[in-house]
Amino acid sequence: MLVEAIDIHKSYRAGDGQLSVLNGVSLELGEGETLALTGESGSGKSTLLHLLAALDTPDEGSIILDDKPLIGLDDVRRAEIRRQTIGLVFQQFNLIPALDVDANIAFQAKLAGRHDTTWQKELVGRLGLTELLSRYPEQLSGGQQQRVAIGRALAVRPRVLMVDEPTGNLDEASADAVMGLLLDLVSETNAGLLMVTHSTLLAGRLSRCQHLSGGRLE
């Protein structure tokens, strides 16, 4: 199993009390599998994504990623897992403003020591970014930034791709095109895909869909 989360609890401090966001969530994701995570705003989808991506730690429960337990790991090991195993696409893309498109796409792959220029070239071509390589994020449209973020996540050939609202800023046609490309690429690399989305249409294109409500998966 690529991702295995068991009985995850997470709460945040809110004013004087605690706000419980996740109350015993468990899920699994296998190789080549695509899973959509849906739910209302504030249902804890992004929190769960952050926990599974080793960006945050749960209050209770365990997470195993590519056979490695995340609980109890120090900052260095967690950073290594993020670097080596996970490809992340944020809703607002969060590209690195100081780097041009080419360097942004290569960034994580180079950090992980797995930069493959041929693979990057192919990705760039398929994502339609060839003409934009020397541009900086501020010079790109939302759709172009989205494609760069996907390119950056896939350039490292991650074991798991975790995507947060990948088409939230795109029109329907563009969203459909980006989604198709994403699914093609995931299938070619045999990575697992976990996608947080509001869109039932998008969720329908993935192999499985789980709905998060009241801090639990339905």
């Binding site: 969060n94 994580q108 950090l111």
Partner: peptide
């Protein structure tokens, strides 16, 4: 913070 957060998320430690 907004400039450093993605770099951290992509695998660089806070210490580094």
């Amino acid at each position: 913070l907004p400039q450093l957060a993605p770099v951290w998320a992509l695998g660089m430690t806070r210490k580094r």
